[in-house]
Computed example of a mutant assay.
Amino acid sequence: MKQAQPNTVRALPVTRARSRSSVWKRIGRTYELYLFLLPTLIYFLIFHYGPMYGLQIAFKNFIAIKGIWDSPWAGFTHFERFFNSPQFTIVLKNTILLNLYELAVSFPVPIVLALLLNQIQHMRFKKWVQTVTYAPHFISAVVIVGMLIAFLSPRSGLVNEVIKVFGGDPVYFMARPEWFKTIFVFSGLWQNAGWSMIIYLAALTSVSPDLHEAAIMDGANKYQRIWHIDLPSILPTVTILLILNVGSFMTVGFEKVYLMQNALNMDASEVIQTYVYKSGLLSAQYSYSAAVGLFNAGVNFILLITVNTIAKRLKQNSLW
C-alpha cells in the first residue's frame, strides 16, 4: 500500500490533463454551437458583470471629479446610516409586506388558471380565453396606472359610480394607504396572470393522455385527475419558478409603484426601489443609494440560496 501511494499521486495530474484535453476536443468538434452562445456571453459580461465594478462606491464617498477608483473609502458608513435612518423600518416593512402579498396572490393564480384551462375541450373558447388573459401583459405601466386613476377617481370613476348606486360614499382609493397594496397586487394580477399561465400550459402538454384515460377507467373525476396527475406533472416547473420568484423577493416593480405614489399614500408605498431612486438620482447621494441597493441585492441573493437549498433537501428540482 505504501508503494502504491506515489503512483496514485502521480496519476492525478495525468488524469486531470487528459480530462481537460478531452473537454477542449469536444468543444472543438462542436465549436459552431459555442459561437452561437458567444453573443449572449458577451452581453452578460458587458451589461451584467461589467457594472459590478461600480459597486465599490457603496463603500466610498463618491466624488464625480475623482471618479470611482480615486474616491476616498468610507467603509460601512453608508450602510450604518441606512440602518439607523427613520426610513429603514418604513421601506423595509413596505417592501416585505408588498412582496408577501404579491407572492401569495399572484403566484398560485396562474397555476390554477392553467390547470382549469387545460380541462377545456372547446379549442376556440380555450384560445379566446388565452388571448384575453395574456393581452394585458403588453400594456405599459404608465397606461395601467392611468387606467387605475380613471376607474378609481372619486368624482367620475366607474368603481365609485357603482358605490354611489348602492348608496355608499365615494372613496379616494389612490390616496388611502390601506388600499395601496391591494390595488397594486390585483392590478398586477390582472395584467400578468395570463402571461405567467403560458409556461404552466406548456408544461401540461407533456402529460401523457394515457394517464388520464387510465384514471377515467378507474372512475376518477376531473378534480381527482387534476390533483393526482396534472399537478404532480408540473410540480418541477412550479418549484423552479417559486425559487426564481423568491430570488427577486425584495424587488418590486419600480415604475408602477413610483407612478402610483402620492403624498397621501407615501406611508404604504415607499419601498426600497423608490427610496434608492429618490436618494440617488434626485438627491445625488450616489454612494448612499448604492449601499441601499447593494443591501437589497444581498437579501435577494441570500433568499435565493436558502430556498434553493431547501428545495434540494426536499428532493425537489433546484437551480443547481
Rank of each mutant, 00 (worst) to 15 (best):
A290M: 14
A175K: 11
S289H: 03
L148G: 02
K25D: 14
L259M: 13
D230C: 02
T40S: 11
Q56A: 09
G75T: 13
H48L: 13
I149Y: 15
S279D: 04
S153C: 01
L148D: 11
L152R: 04
N265G: 02
R124Y: 08
T89I: 11
N265F: 13
T239E: 05
S19R: 15
A203R: 02
I310M: 14
I199V: 13
F166Q: 07
F125H: 07
T309I: 09
F254I: 01
H137P: 08
L113G: 00
S85W: 04
Y31W: 15
R29V: 11
L117I: 01
A135F: 07
V9F: 08
V271M: 03
I27E: 06
N118I: 00
S19T: 13
S187K: 06
F173A: 00
L294S: 11
S153F: 05
G67A: 07
D230F: 02
F62E: 03
L294V: 05
A203Y: 02
G168W: 04
F76I: 14
Y288L: 05
S71L: 04
I310C: 10
M217P: 00
T95V: 03
N265M: 07
Q273K: 02
K164A: 12
Q224N: 07
S156Q: 10
N160S: 04
N99R: 10
F151L: 13
L37C: 12
N84S: 14
V112D: 05
T309S: 12
Q87W: 04
V238C: 04
W195V: 08
I305D: 05
I90N: 12
A291D: 07
E270Q: 11
V292Q: 10
G188S: 11
G188Y: 08
A150Q: 13
P236Y: 09
L115G: 00
Y200H: 02
F36M: 13
V112K: 02
D267R: 12
V238T: 03
V129H: 02
S22E: 15
L113Q: 00
F125G: 09
W227A: 10
M123L: 08
G67F: 08
H78I: 09
I63L: 12
F249G: 00
I272M: 13
N245K: 15
L204E: 06
K126R: 13
P13K: 05
V142I: 03
F59K: 09
L37N: 07
F88I: 07
W320C: 00
T131I: 07
S21H: 14
Q121N: 03
A311C: 03
S106N: 14
P110H: 03
L33P: 04
M250L: 09
T274S: 05
F180A: 08
Y288H: 05
R313Q: 10
K315N: 12
N84Q: 14
N245S: 13
A215M: 01
Q3R: 12
Y172N: 15
F186S: 07
L319E: 07
A214T: 10
S85G: 06
D210F: 15
T95G: 11
K164M: 15
W320P: 00
V165Y: 14
T95F: 05
V109M: 06
W24G: 10
W73D: 14
M197Y: 01
R16T: 15
G167E: 09
Q5K: 06
R313F: 10
I65A: 14
Q224S: 11
L201R: 00
Y288K: 01
